[in-house]
Amino acid sequence: MTGRDAERSGAGPINGVEHVLDVRKLSKVYGAGETAVHALRDVDLTVRRGEYVAVIGQSGSGKSTLLNMLGCLDAPTSGRYLLEGLDVAYLDERQQAVLRNRQIGFVFQAFNLIPRTTALANVELPLVYAGVGRRVRRDRAMAALALVGLQGREDHRPNQLSGGQQQRVAVARALVTGPALLLADEPTGNLDSRSTADALALFDRLHASGRTIVLITHDDEVAARAERVVVVSDGRLSETARR
């Protein structure tokens, strides 16, 4: 089914309210019978355009499973997940890969940069996969690096950058396609206190500019920077704060 067909299936914004994310009764079960593990249980979550939401939970709480669902990296056992009003269940693997590349910007704890490649080439990578021409992708990558404050570092390889700078490259790469959603998985987990403060200040600026951010963390202080905090415990979600 195409994206247009999925939109016709009733996967549009609910009650005229525009949501970037709309998760309904999402569940994930691994295994079967007595050994079944219920990683997510009837999760409901909506995120409006421009919101900054932190999802917090301890190891084993289900937050990593939720991240995989939101990033279209795994399929739920039941329930629905709408991204930009589109029900991803109607997309085949190729269409989901295109959706991930164009609509979701990923920022990981481990940065996931290619070691022997420059900062510029790392940021260009999603545009290479999208088939964007060389000159255009270079211009967009340069702009993304400037946005995160890395002018003059375009030709540096990851081992020539600090941890905080590497994370900024990762954020630039996540932003270069102009995604609907910035999905950050423990983005400060490998940073020292100063780099953590810099990274969180960058997320604050991105939020102020209208970016939609969902940040996964186990750290209360990191979560407190978001305007909404959602707690995952035993596979269930509960909202605890709205700033």
Rank of each mutant, 00 (worst) to 15 (best):
A130C: 04
R94Q: 06
F111D: 14
S195R: 12
R168T: 01
Y129D: 02
R135K: 14
F203Q: 07
V148E: 02
Q167D: 15
R173T: 10
L82C: 12
A174L: 04
L182F: 06
A89H: 10
G133C: 04
Q103E: 14
Q151D: 11
R194T: 14
H156Y: 13
L182E: 11
G131H: 06
G105H: 11
F108P: 03
P179L: 07
L161R: 02
L86T: 11
Q96A: 07
A141P: 07
Q109V: 04
A97Y: 09
A110Q: 12
H156W: 05
A184M: 08
N112Q: 14
L91M: 08
D87G: 09
G149K: 06
D87F: 08
I104E: 10
T77E: 01
R134C: 02
F203A: 08
A121Y: 00
Q96V: 10
R137P: 13
L91Q: 05
Q160K: 03
L191E: 15
A170I: 07
Y129F: 15
T77H: 04
R205H: 12
S195F: 10
G178M: 11
L147W: 07
T196L: 09
F203W: 06
R94P: 03
R140E: 02
L183F: 06
T117Q: 13
P115K: 00
R94W: 08
L200Y: 03
